[in-house]
């Protein structure tokens, strides 16, 4: 696991199973390939409250930040095994 992945790993431990699964799956498969800018956006998303993140990742609400909504789409569309 890369340093970035270990750093993210604990921030992806959340209060809701749905977030655990989506975020960890994304970190496993995509996090090492994030650009510096995308990594900054990902860290911003991880700082959101669980309920906000849940609504964004489950499509109940849409972020007005285009970079954030692009990354959210990437997280949502990362296939599970």
């Amino acid at each position: 696991m890369t340093a970035e992945q270990t750093n993210y790993r604990w921030q992806c431990r959340r209060g809701m199973l749905e977030l655990d699964l989506l975020l960890n799956n994304f970190v496993d498969k995509k996090a090492s390939a994030l650009s510096m800018e995308q990594a900054a956006v990902f860290e911003m998303l991880l700082s959101y409250p669980d309920q906000t993140l849940f609504d964004l990742l489950l499509g109940n609400s849409v972020s007005s930040d285009r970079r954030a909504s692009a990354l959210i789409e990437q997280i949502r569309s990362t296939p599970f095994d």
């Binding site: 431990r13 959340r14 209060g15 809701m16 409250p49 309920q51």
Partner: peptide
């Protein structure tokens, strides 16, 4: 708390 407090499972 092993995670940030507002990430506890009560949130679910």
């Amino acid at each position: 708390s092993k995670v940030f407090p507002t990430r506890s499972h009560t949130v679910a």
